[in-house]
Simulated assay, not measured.
Amino acid sequence: MTKIPQSSSRGWQRPNIYDVARRAGVSHMTVSRVLNEHPHIRETTRNRVLQVIEEMSYTPSSIARALATRRARRIGVLIDGPVQNGPNNTFRALEVAAREVGYAVSAFSISDDDASQMDSGVIELVTQGIDALCVIAPRESSLDLLRQQMTGLPTIVIKAEADAAWHTVGVDQREGARLAVQHLIRLGHRTIAHLAGPMDWFDARERTQGWRECLAEAGLSEGPFIIGDWTSDFGFEFGRSFDLGETTAVFAANDQIALGVIHGLHGRGVRVPEDVNVIGFDDLSDARHFLPPLTTVRQDFAALGELALQQIIAAIEGDTEPSHDMIQPQLIVRESTTTVAPG
């Protein structure tokens, strides 16, 4: 019987870091140090390793790097409320930023109505060999469950409020609300309603607090305050049926609510902005195409993703002291707000 050579039976395979190390007569750690341009390598050794790399057409892969550095170069991301604009855009921005520096991302989504999935999500991600955990958890109930987990991994949470347990980054939601309400006050509005998101959401609470602070600082009483969900349907019901009374402006907790408000008001003959001003939050890509184009608060999700990644890498490299950083929002003025009509 003729014995088939091992190389023939398996065909060509991409060389790995151990193949390079064997041919160069060095350890795989030495190859790793050469690849990472470590300064304390003999020049003769460096040249020999580089020559073998060229001969073998070796390209470092994420797996090879993981074997050499004991890191997977993979970040686990838990996404709470993934269908909502904020969590969805935050994840996409983080994924882009991670890819640009050679990190892969594994994600686990938690549905809006089942925060208990946090436990199974953490387990699934940890078993994939991640280097760090990033949690996009806008709800307090989700973070309460996370506090019960002991992963031992560097963890960063994306939310506007600081937290003594973890690194945190976020967009300054309270400042965004202040920008919106201050804009309405400058236009002469004195009774400003707020349609808020669910109070279990950190962002909804911070936006509500910003609304209250601005009114108090201006010596104004709080206008109508209604807690709902994040949907256009919630805004529509308000717009079509709520007795506005003295209300001349509505601060909606997001652009989708604002869209519903405008639709509901239109159906009963109330004009925006001539009769009632409407301002949103998020600056959806379609907000400039609302009728009228929507004044809103823009969140820079790309900057948030980059900042979150910086904090994740710092944590992986040993920065264990919890930190908190925030991105500043921007007021975008369009045609849904105007100076209050006299009389």
Rank of each mutant, 00 (worst) to 15 (best):
D131Y: 06
A107T: 14
S109W: 11
V135F: 00
T151N: 01
L145E: 00
R92Q: 11
T155Y: 04
A93Y: 01
M118D: 06
A107Y: 02
D112H: 09
I156R: 06
E100R: 01
P138V: 03
I156N: 04
S116C: 04
T127C: 07
R139V: 01
L133K: 04
Q117G: 15
A104F: 12
I130K: 04
S116V: 06
E124F: 02
F91A: 03
I158P: 01
C134P: 03
I123Q: 15
G129L: 04
I130V: 07
V157Y: 05
S106D: 15
G152M: 02
A132H: 01
P138Q: 15
S120F: 04
A160D: 14
G129S: 09
V126A: 12
A160K: 12
S142N: 12
R147G: 05
N89Y: 13
E95S: 07
S106L: 12
S120A: 13
T151P: 03
Y103S: 01
G102T: 11
K159P: 00
Q117V: 05
L94I: 12
D144E: 15
V96L: 13
G102H: 10
D113L: 11
D113F: 05
L143V: 14
I130Q: 02
K159S: 07
L125A: 03
A93D: 00
R147N: 14
Q148M: 14
L145Y: 05
V135A: 10
F91V: 02
A98Y: 01
G129H: 08
Q117R: 10
V105K: 01
S120N: 07
D144Y: 12
M150W: 03
S141W: 08
L125T: 10
Y103T: 04
T90Y: 04
T151A: 05
S142V: 07
N88D: 06
D112E: 15
M118G: 06
T90F: 03
L94P: 00
E100W: 01
C134V: 02
N89S: 14
Q128H: 11
I158E: 05
L125P: 03
M118F: 05
A93P: 05
D113W: 12
C134D: 05
D112I: 15
V96R: 10
Y103C: 07
R147E: 08
L125Y: 03
P154N: 09
T127N: 13
A93R: 03
L143S: 10
L143E: 12
L133E: 00
Q148S: 14
I136K: 02
A107I: 10
